[in-house]
Each structure stands twice: as structure tokens, then as C-alpha cells.
Simulated scan of single mutants.
Amino acid sequence: MSRLALLLSGGVLAAASAPANAGSVTITVTDLRNTKGVVMACMTTKESIFPKCRRDPNSHRTVVKASNTLTIRFDDVAPGDYAIALLHDENEDGKANRVLGMAPKEGYGFSRDAPVNMAPPDWDDAVFTITDAPKKMTIKMRYFL
């Protein structure tokens, strides 16, 4: 059967590209201190690596230019429990710069505006559930210095 015939007979190929009951997550980022650099966003289902979800090959990731009005959207998100980490990478070096190796020099934010107390937040403070319905949230960017 040709690809065209397969598509016309039930959309098998089209349906295979997106998870069943996929949802979307729209994040409004507030309180950026400037429009320098980019904002890196990463969303994962893996508690064991959060907030460094780059180690999750199935994570949703994007990088967007910093702006006064910033919206980030992830589409085709399978239902499940997720947490988001944001970094305002002002110098665009692709990493979270620190002062004296400890305190963050650049802005950061987490889903559910999870609290930060001398370390990244716990998964339980940042986790939220995705269904097939669109999810909207606001994350406040924070700066240590």
C-alpha cells in the first residue's frame, strides 16, 4: 500500500507523529530584569534529574530570545507529571553562571514558582500534571544578585 493510500485510509502515518491525547503547556515568564540573552526552558518527567533535564532525551526543551513579554509553549506533551526549569542566560554561554561557585548569577524560575532555599527546589514543589487539556502557568524569574 502506498503512503498516500495509507494516509487516506485512516491517517495512520499522521497519527503516529503525536502522542495520543497530547496536550500543550503555555508558560508566561514574568519579572525578567532585562532583555539580554535568552531564556532556556526545560520540562521533564524525571524526578531523579530535575532540574537538569538536559539529561532526559525525552524532555521538552527550547531556547527563546529574552523579551519584556515572554511566552513559551510546548506542544504534543504526553499526559503525565512534569516539572519545568528556566534559566535567563544573559550572556548566552549555555550554562548557569554562579558567583563564587555557589550563588546563581543569572535568573532562574521553576514550575509552580517552587521555592529555592540554598539549593534547587524539590521535585514535589515543582511538579504538575498534564492531561489532554491545555495547561497555562506563570513562572516568575528570580535573581539572587
Rank of each mutant, 00 (worst) to 15 (best):
A5R: 08
R3T: 02
P79A: 01
A83E: 01
V116L: 08
M102A: 14
R98S: 09
R54Q: 08
A14E: 08
V116S: 04
K105D: 13
K140E: 06
N21K: 14
P19Y: 02
P51C: 07
M141Y: 00
T62P: 13
H88F: 04
R33F: 07
D56Q: 10
V127D: 08
H60R: 11
N58F: 07
D125S: 12
S17M: 11
E92K: 11
V39N: 12
A78P: 00
D93P: 06
V63Q: 13
K46Y: 03
N97D: 15
S24P: 02
T131P: 07
R3H: 02
L70H: 13
L8R: 08
F50P: 05
A41Y: 11
L8P: 01
K136C: 05
A83P: 03
L86F: 01
K52F: 14
K46E: 10
R3F: 05
K135V: 15
K52W: 13
E106Q: 14
K52T: 08
I139T: 04
A41C: 07
D132F: 03
K105H: 04
K52M: 12
S9A: 11
M1I: 05
I84H: 02
T129A: 15
R112M: 15
V12P: 00
S2N: 08
A133L: 12
M43V: 12
L70R: 11
S59G: 07
D31A: 09
S111Q: 15
L100G: 03
Y82H: 05
N58G: 13
L70N: 07
S67A: 14
D132N: 13
A22R: 09
L70F: 10
R98L: 12
K136N: 15
M118C: 01
A15M: 06
I72F: 04
L4N: 03
F50E: 03
A66W: 08
P79F: 01
L86E: 00
W123E: 09
F128V: 09
I49V: 12
P57M: 13
H60P: 06
T44M: 05
L13M: 03
S24W: 05
G11Q: 08
A96V: 03
L8S: 06
Y82G: 05
F128H: 06
D122R: 15
T44A: 06
D93N: 15
V127Q: 06
D122M: 10
F110R: 02
D31N: 10
N34P: 05
A119P: 03
T28R: 14
T35A: 14
Y82D: 04
A114C: 04
D125R: 01
G107F: 04
M118L: 13
L70Q: 08
K52Q: 14
R142F: 00
R61K: 12
P121E: 10
D113K: 03
A133V: 05
G10K: 00
V38F: 09
A22G: 02
I72K: 05
C53D: 12
P134G: 13
D113F: 02
S2Q: 01
T62L: 15
R55N: 11
G109M: 11
L100W: 15
K65C: 00
V39E: 12
V116A: 10
M1S: 07
S17T: 14
G80H: 02
T138P: 05
Y82N: 01
F144P: 01
V25N: 08
K95E: 07
R55D: 12
S48A: 10
A14D: 05
A119K: 15
G101M: 08
T62R: 12
D113W: 00
S59I: 09
K65Q: 06
V25Q: 10
D75H: 02
M40H: 09
K105Q: 14
N21H: 13
